[in-house]
Amino acid sequence: MTAGTLAEYLDATAEVSQGHAAAPPELMHLVHEMDAVFHREFFNRPLELTPVAALLAINAYTALLGAVREALSGHVVLVFPVARAALESACYAFLVSQDETRADIWLNRHRSTDDLKACRNVFVVDKAIKILQPFQPVMAEYVRGMYDASIDYGAHPNPLSVLSHIEATGPEGNDEFGFSLTGVQGCNSWHVNRELLVCVETGQAVAFLIAASVADHPFLNERAQDFEDWMASKNQMAESFNGAPIKYVGPMYASVRPPTS
């Protein structure tokens, strides 16, 4: 095996980042639209959130920005663990909003072995999904799909996260065949744009969870159509990017396929 050096990696990610700063990727406008939603709905108005729930919500947003940063660097596989962290933080905020006693369980996580066990038992994404299921079954499954897909595509080193970046390089010597693993994708590449779509889909789940953490938040009530229109607009752009209608279960990005030529 051979690999580039750290210096080469840093040069490559800096070059891709600078290229995207000069000429944004095709789907970057979706990311800016997402950011505008967060600021309009959550950061420009008072929110009835307890301190711990608010802290976890803002942590989810900043992690989401980190996922965008990874996509723009070209090291796209790292989008998934960061996006997963954003989604988990939003789920934790929602769990605390439903029961304020959970805040102390979260804060005391590292106090003792028993506290650690208690925290691990309470703060589970599936428990947030179960609370959502009775009154928001569609979004409950959306959150579940985003979380599961993040693990498949890069939050864990599963086949989809590794093999999708491998290319055959052909015969090399006697009885040998070469393969190349791409660590940094180029400017405006298919992978960069697909992972920006990942960030937007994760962001929609995060936005929903934050809104659901606030009693009667208008984004899920009198302005629920705005949320639905945002989802529909993203779906339309994803299908345009894909070049064909998408039949999918769970996150749309998991059904977007790279071009064959």
Results as ranks from 00 to 15, higher is better:
Val79Ala: 03
Pro218Ala: 12
Arg120Tyr: 13
Ala23Lys: 15
Asn188Glu: 05
Tyr61Leu: 09
Asn221Lys: 08
Pro259Phe: 09
Asn174Arg: 10
Asn193Ala: 07
Glu33Tyr: 06
Ser189Leu: 13
Asn221Asp: 13
Gly74Lys: 04
Pro25Gln: 07
Gly186Trp: 03
Phe219Val: 02
Ala212Gly: 09
Met252Ala: 10
Pro258Glu: 02
Asn44Tyr: 05
Gly170Ile: 08
Glu195Pro: 00
Thr260Phe: 11
Asn193Leu: 00
Gln133Arg: 12
Ala232Phe: 04
Lys234Ala: 13
Thr202Val: 14
Leu27Met: 07
Val206Gln: 04
Asp226Pro: 01
Pro258Tyr: 03
Thr169Phe: 06
Thr13Gln: 07
Ala85Lys: 13
Val256Pro: 04
Pro134Ala: 00
Asn158Tyr: 13
Asn242Cys: 00
Asn44His: 10
Lys130Cys: 00
Asp216Ile: 04
Val198Glu: 03
Val76Met: 01
Cys119Gln: 09
Ala149Asn: 03
His39Asn: 14
Ser233Arg: 15
Ser150Arg: 06
Ile246Asn: 00
Ser240Tyr: 02
Ile105Leu: 06
Ala67Leu: 11
Gly145Ile: 03
Asp226Ala: 10
Leu27Ile: 01
Lys117His: 12
Ser97Ala: 15
Thr260Glu: 03
Gln133Val: 06
Leu10His: 12
Ala22Asp: 12
Ala140Gly: 03
Ala205Lys: 03
Gly145His: 06
Ser89Val: 02
Tyr153Asp: 12
His217Glu: 10
Val31Ile: 13
Ala224Val: 13
Tyr9Met: 11
Leu6Cys: 11
Thr260Trp: 00
Val162Ser: 11
Asp216Gln: 14
Ala54Ile: 01
Thr113Tyr: 06
Phe177Glu: 07
Ser213Glu: 03
Met237Ser: 15
Leu55Ala: 14
Ala23Leu: 10
Phe179Gly: 02
Pro81Tyr: 06
Gly203Tyr: 02
Glu176Gly: 07
Glu222Thr: 14
Asp104Cys: 00
Asn193Asp: 08
Arg223Gly: 01
Ser161Pro: 09
Thr182Trp: 06
Asp216Lys: 14
Gly183Ser: 04
Asp229Thr: 08
Ile210Val: 13
Phe177Trp: 14
Ser112Pro: 06
His110Cys: 06
Leu65Arg: 14
Thr182Met: 10
Met146Gln: 15
Ala128Trp: 10
Ala232Glu: 12
Lys234Asp: 04
Asp114Phe: 02
Gly74Met: 09
Asn158Asp: 10
Ala149Leu: 05
Lys127Ile: 01
